[in-house]
């Protein structure tokens, strides 16, 4: 697999949506190609950052209470 193909498939790979064979090939390319490896690592860190920035938020207690009250009326 060359760099162009690898980068084309990179998101699918990181999303764990690439089939077994392509995934193995891409994995091998990343082991051999420093540029693609470093880019893949960057994208992975970026996604972790996006996730972390949003998952710290929780539904406010007032909302929980409001919904519980409504459910009691069902």
């Amino acid at each position: 697999m060359d760099c162009e193909k690898a980068l084309e498939k990179l998101w699918q790979f990181l999303d764990k949506e690439l089939d077994g064979e392509s995934s193995t090939e891409l994995q091998r390319h990343l082991e051999e190609c420093r540029h693609c490896f470093s880019l893949a690592e960057f994208e992975q860190r970026l996604r972790a950052m996006v996730r972390r920035s949003c998952t710290g938020e929780h539904a406010p207690p007032e909302l929980k209470e409001r919904l519980s009250k409504l459910i009691r009326l069902f």
């Binding site: 949003c54 998952t55 938020e57 929780h58 539904a59 406010p60 007032e62 909302l63 929980k64 409001r66 919904l67 409504l70």
Partner: peptide, 23 residues
């Protein structure tokens, strides 16, 4: 609920609207 609220908040960009949407 947390997952729904987070998604609602990102979509509506506003806490009050997010709560209404979840309801």
């Amino acid at each position: 609920l947390d997952s729904l609220y987070r998604s609602a908040l990102r979509l509506t960009r506003n806490r009050a609207s997010a709560e209404d949407l979840v309801q």
